[in-house]
Design a protein around this nucleic acid. Structure first.
Lengths: 311, 311
DNA sequence: AACTCAATATTGATAGCATCGATGAACATT
DNA sequence: AATGTTCATCGATGCTATCAATATTGAGTT
């Protein structure tokens, strides 16, 4: 039994073709065939059904495969840990960010972050919280940036910052400051379902979804803050926006923004990783870079001990 | 990099002596030395400090060792899974049971259970809940039998049965049936601290620890139900006992027992394993054997939907 | 400083095995 | 029947894990 055999099985299970799997492992088909047979023999269980075209996993093989994946992953972690110890950060890192954060936060830190790990191939995606958590668990992505808390035993969270919401009113010029409870909730536009910010705002308003939506005689499902804003402007509607999406508004646009008086409604943004994520240094640098970028921009409000403030 | 090297490192880390570690791995000292050097070279990190006598782990080595243990464990799981698939159950199984269950439950099923796995070396220990959970997490034991729920993300629970408490009064003969609230709480003796049953009974009584203990002018710390009973008998005191400890009392002793009328105070007993425990079949057979043994004995009470009933 | 002992590293030989290219076997397609 | 595809098997080869023997190192000891 050896580590190569594990890789061969995983490759064959993925590609379902001996030659292609062999190619992926940089060996000949002959080697792959022999080695997989040996592992099957040693375990005493046929992993593949070679009668089927293309090759298929046996029922027992499917069970074993799951464990093989785990073993493989832990061996990968071993390598990653030693690279971290040596201060070498290589390989590929996939970061996924929710759509209400990504376009505003990423430009603030991504470049500086990437510079620190020239050997690291960084891939950034935009996904909803649900997808991010699912993919963290299946280890398809490495780090998520979402609105915390998540409260999942498999997921580790790292609080980053609190981001206030602001009120945006198209057409009129609302007052600079506004009390949460005096908010005009008619014509409040929201993002489409699946976005955590939609849910948060609905909860903030203490309103049922129907009540909010029904204020408008048609229903626009915005998939991004940008799209939401265009809709709001075009229809004289209003909405709530995260602070980072408005902090650099030009003067003309800033007139439509109201900041909230205390208690300011806000959301918490944090890093999330799988609990077995081992590249601690990357995580630490990422956290530092984000905070360094975001702190000078965010208003200086003390959110300590506060929960989401209902409107 | 290969699996043997992992084992060599683990053995050396444990025994801190090349020759002894080599012996444990059934290779020569020369092999062990070479192979460990190779792994260190491949990882690029010295794991051991050979200058120290006896050999010591380097700081980095200690970090790597943790991951090596994980890898090793997952490979062991792979073997165990294939044995389970083949229906072969071999190796060693360590079961730990809390002291208020062990002496009464074990004789009821252990023999029949062991017969089903003649190749399995079964070791049974008696430990408190805290120790059991700790050792499950460090993977030093395999299965625990405790009073559930535990509610720990790393621990998986398997409910077994509900066990009523009964009231024992030395000296007098209490009525056959007793209402929980009419219980005489003076002179109620308890197990020493660390036993979950002590805590449960204190909670049941809704009494603070001091109030209960102060009823007696001296303080006996019983470490087992047996020891507790001797004390109670010798001092005309009273106590609560788990049903399995009294169900086969001789008539003379049974006179001192009161069963509770509804709502009957009870505890829940369950199997607990680490969430990565893979020997599902063993667990399943164990559960079946315990239930088969215990069901004819336990009184037929429906505890569904009830929580621990306070006295 | 010379010696001794214990512990680890190194050396050179060997056997086992992963790997290869070539070929064979099974099966589907034409 | 001929051909193509796919996986298994065979014999050769080179690598490497392993061994026994020996060298080196280091910490006492005399």
């Amino acid at each position: 039994m050896n580590i190569h055999q594990f890789q061969y099985v995983l490759a064959l299970a993925e590609l379902r073709h001996f030659e292609k799997a062999a190619e992926k492992c940089f060996v000949t088909q002959s080697t792959l065939s022999t080695m997989i047979s040996k592992l099957e023999e040693e375990l005493g269980i046929p992993i593949f059904d070679r009668k089927k075209k293309p090759v298929a996993l046996t029922a027992e093989g499917a069970v074993l495969l799951e464990q093989l994946k785990i073993v493989q992953r832990e061996i990968e972690s071993l390598k990653e840990i030693s690279q971290e110890i040596k201060g070498e950060v290589k390989g590929r890192l996939i970061i996924s960010v929710i759509p209400t954060i990504a376009p505003f936060l990423l430009p603030l830190f991504l470049h500086r972050f990437a510079l620190q790990f020239p050997q690291l191939q960084i891939i950034v995606r935009e996904q909803t919280t649900g997808e991010i958590i699912r993919q963290l668990k299946s280890r398809d992505i490495d780090i998520g940036i979402v609105s915390t808390p998540i409260n999942d035993a498999e997921i580790e969270e790292q609080k980053l910052y609190h981001e206030p919401f602001v009120y945006y009113q198209a057409g009129k010029e609302p007052p600079k400051r506004i009390e949460a409870h005096e908010l005009d909730l008619s014509n409040l536009a929201l993002l489409e379902e699946g976005h955590c910010m939609r849910t948060q705002i609905i909860e903030l308003c203490n309103y049922h979804e129907n009540q909010l939506v029904n204020q408008l005689n048609f229903n626009f499902q915005a998939g991004s803050i940008d799209s939401l804003l265009r809709f709001v402007r075009g229809n004289g509607a209003s909405t709530l926006l995260p602070y980072l999406s408005v902090y650099d508004f030009p003067e003309e646009e800033a007139k439509h923004i109201s900041r909230f008086s205390d208690p300011v409604p806000f959301r918490e943004i944090g890093l999330v990783v799988h609990r077995h994520f081992v590249r601690k240094r990357i995580l630490h640098v990422l956290e530092e870079e984000i905070l360094k970028a975001v702190k000078p921009i965010l208003p200086n409000i003390d959110f300590s001990g506060k929960r989401l403030s209902p409107l």
